Amino acid sequence: MVVKSVDAVDALRRRGSVYERFGVHPIINGNGTQTILGGSIMEPEVAEAMAEASRTMVVLEELNEAAGQLIAEHTGAEAGLVTSGAAAGLTLQAAAVVAGEDPERIALLPEAAHDRNQIVIKSSHDSEFTQAWRQGGARLVWVGNEETCHDWEIESAISGETVALGFIASRWHPDSFEGLSKFVEIAHGHGLPLLVDAAAMLPPAENLRRFIEYGADLVSYSGGKAIKAPQSTGILCGRADLIAAAKLNASPHYSIGRPMKVAREEIVGLMAALELYVRRDHEADMRRWFSEGRTIVDAVIEIPGVTATIEQDDWLRPVPEVSIAFTSEWGGRSAEAIVNALAEGDPPIIIEASRRDDEDIFINPHGLMPGEAELIAERLQVEFEAG
């Protein structure tokens, strides 16, 4: 059944009534799974599992153990832990390699009780999230430049003060699994663990196991993006000894991770969402995203000065995105002005002006509900034709 755009608006009003009760405006999210927009929409089964969990008390250590076993099963890791988001997972990674299971060192964090606290990382991997490693007591040693990093530079940066190598898996830098494999080789050649931030590297679903298969020792994923768990959750998986150390540095223990508490309802929500994710028909998701993208492209492709395509790549753009660019024929408003107009509409539509030189606007359909692609297509067509 095709859902019309007007029906999509009515459905948004119904789903978002609790927000409107408090004066908050529900949005149509054409911008993927960004935290600033709340991540993703949980499946009803996840919300039901959380509600059920809220009515009963358990010992958190037992629940964490069960969750860890489930995570290990589905990631191929030795052990796992539910964290309060992927960034919290990075802080616990650092704490695990800097303080380990030593009570005195754990109590001192984020100050390190010794000089062996360095994580070596490529300069091209710099991001807002590397602060999370520093929060866990690590000192970051940057090597190379924003574009290149030679193996010898990594090797020469490793010293007696190095506790790990760090790898940020991101759509925004040129590294891929080939680069990861080399980093693993260097780290393990020096008897060091490799820590990976893979927060947004799902889909493809194969990536849930791929980083461990490549030899990473600790991997942090977001729970609130593709997995559709509560936005406040994440997955940390890896070597059993390092997960054991991460647990001691995490809540409910009195440690650096105490403020990063994960409620029992959230842990159960992550577990339920993970089970759904591994059983999900990912090919059907891909077909739906392509179809929604095609709806948008077809609506604007004939407008003078506008080009529109669908782009998909397992590393750079795993979810098929609509890529819109203005040619020399375009005489209308800027991409930013059009994006702002959509955000100020009723209902607000959130898409993004691109940071790429060959692209002006992109639309990610991951968070779209039935009929919302049609609504975006209609609104974009109006804005483009208005110039």
Rank of each mutant, 00 (worst) to 15 (best):
P230L: 10
G85P: 06
T83M: 07
E383G: 06
A373S: 13
D7K: 09
Q381F: 00
L208G: 04
R210T: 07
A335Q: 10
E383L: 13
S84Y: 03
L70V: 11
H74W: 11
V300S: 08
Q312S: 08
I121E: 14
R356T: 06
A273E: 13
I361C: 10
P348V: 05
E78N: 09
A198F: 09
E292T: 02
S84A: 15
V9D: 06
E178I: 12
R355K: 13
L90R: 06
L12Q: 00
V98R: 08
A138S: 08
Q131D: 14
D241L: 01
M286W: 05
R134P: 01
G16N: 04
G215T: 05
V120D: 13
V97N: 11
Y254T: 12
I119N: 04
V262R: 10
V382T: 13
N364C: 11
P174I: 06
N31K: 01
M369I: 01
G100K: 05
M201S: 12
E374I: 00
E43T: 07
H74G: 01
H188L: 02
A113R: 10
F290M: 13
P193V: 07
R288H: 03
R13K: 14
G137K: 04
F129R: 08
L63Q: 12
V319R: 02
A113G: 15
I212D: 07
L274P: 00
L165Q: 09
W172F: 15
V46Q: 02
A343V: 04
A138N: 03
A198Y: 05
H150W: 10
E372M: 04
A113F: 09
L276W: 01
H150S: 13
T75M: 03
G223H: 03
A95V: 12
S123D: 15
D358C: 04
R239V: 10
D7T: 13
L60I: 14
W330E: 10
H190W: 08
D281H: 00
D175P: 01
A99F: 12
F129V: 15
K4M: 10
G32V: 10
G387H: 12
V382L: 10
D314S: 14
T309D: 14
A138R: 03
P304Q: 09
I363S: 07
R239L: 15
K228I: 02
V219I: 12
G269P: 06
V339G: 12
E62H: 13
I154E: 15
E52L: 03
A113Y: 10
N207C: 11
Y214I: 00
A47H: 01
G189C: 08
L108E: 12
E147C: 01
R264G: 01
A308Q: 08
T83H: 02
E352T: 14
I168E: 13
C149V: 15
V319W: 07
E45P: 00
G144Q: 05
E352H: 05
L180E: 11
L242E: 08
V382K: 11
A200L: 15
V46Y: 01
Q93N: 11
D151N: 11
R333N: 07
E311V: 14
A51R: 09
A200Q: 00
P347K: 08
G80F: 09
A51C: 05
R239S: 15
A199Y: 06
F211R: 05
L140W: 11
E283Y: 09
H188R: 07
I324F: 10
Q69A: 14
V322A: 07
I361V: 13
Y221A: 10
R279A: 15
